Amino acid sequence: MSIQHFRVALIPFFAAFCLPVFAHPETLVKVKDAEDQLGARVGYIELDLNSGKILESFRPEERFPMMSTFKVLLCGAVLSRVDAGQEQLGRRIHYSQNDLVEYSPVTEKHLTDGMTVRELCSAAITMSDNTAANLLLTTIGGPKELTAFLHNMGDHVTRLDRWEPELNEAIPNDERDTTMPAAMATTLRKLLTGELLTLASRQQLIDWMEADKVAGPLLRSALPAGWFIADKSGAGERGSRGIIAALGPDGKPSRIVVIYTTGSQATMDERNRQIAEIGASLIKHW
Rank of each mutant, 00 (worst) to 15 (best):
P25K: 15
T27R: 08
V29C: 12
K30Q: 09
D33E: 02
A34I: 06
E35M: 14
E35H: 14
D36P: 04
D36H: 03
D36C: 05
D36V: 07
Q37G: 05
V42Q: 01
G43C: 06
I45R: 06
L47P: 00
S51E: 06
G52M: 10
K53L: 13
L55T: 07
L55V: 15
E56Q: 05
S57K: 07
S57A: 06
S57W: 12
F58G: 11
F58A: 09
R59Y: 15
P60K: 09
E62T: 02
R63Y: 14
R63P: 08
F64M: 11
T69W: 00
T69E: 05
K71D: 00
K71C: 00
K71E: 00
V72S: 04
L73V: 09
L73W: 04
L74C: 10
C75F: 00
G76V: 10
G76Q: 01
A77E: 15
L79Y: 11
S80K: 15
R81T: 10
V82H: 09
V82W: 11
A84R: 10
Q86N: 14
E87C: 10
E87N: 07
L89N: 04
G90L: 11
R92D: 14
R92P: 11
Q97F: 11
D99K: 02
L100W: 15
V101P: 04
V101F: 03
E102T: 04
E102F: 02
E102P: 04
P105K: 04
P105H: 03
V106G: 15
E108L: 13
E108T: 14
K109P: 06
H110M: 09
L111S: 06
L111Q: 08
T112L: 13
T112P: 14
T112S: 10
D113I: 06
M115R: 04
T116S: 11
T116W: 12
V117M: 06
E119V: 03
C121V: 06
C121M: 04
A123N: 02
A124Q: 11
T126G: 05
D129G: 01
T131V: 11
A133E: 01
N134K: 09
T139E: 14
I140A: 15
I140E: 07
I140G: 07
I140C: 13
G141P: 10
G141F: 06
G141M: 05
G142C: 03
G142K: 05
P143F: 07
E145K: 15
E145F: 14
L146A: 06
T147Y: 05
T147K: 04
A148S: 08
N152W: 13
M153T: 03
M153D: 02
M153G: 02
D155E: 03
R159I: 14
R162Y: 09
R162T: 13
E164P: 00
E164T: 00
P165Y: 09
P165W: 05
E166W: 13
L167Q: 06
N168T: 12
N168D: 09
A170T: 02
P172Y: 09
N173A: 14
D174T: 13
E175P: 11
R176W: 10
M180C: 03
A183V: 11
T186A: 13
L188E: 01
E195C: 15
L196T: 12
L197C: 07
T198C: 14
A200P: 06
S201D: 12
Q203D: 02
Q204W: 03
I206Q: 10
I206M: 15
I206C: 12
D207E: 07
D207P: 09
W208A: 13
M209Q: 10
A211L: 11
A211E: 15
A211Q: 14
D212W: 15
V214P: 10
A215K: 11
L218S: 03
L223I: 13
P224W: 02
P224N: 15
A225K: 12
F228D: 14
F228I: 15
A230H: 01
G236Q: 07
E237D: 09
R238S: 08
G242T: 13
G242W: 00
I243D: 13
A246S: 06
A246E: 05
L247T: 10
L247I: 15
G248I: 01
G248E: 01
G248K: 07
P249Q: 12
D250Y: 02
D250Q: 02
D250E: 03
V257D: 01
V257F: 14
V258M: 02
V258R: 00
I259E: 01
Y260R: 00
T261I: 10
S264Y: 08
Q265Y: 09
T267F: 09
T267C: 03
M268D: 13
E270W: 15
E270C: 04
E270G: 06
N272S: 12
N272T: 13
R273I: 05
Q274Y: 02
I275Q: 01
A276H: 12
A280C: 11
L282G: 08
L282D: 01
W286Q: 03
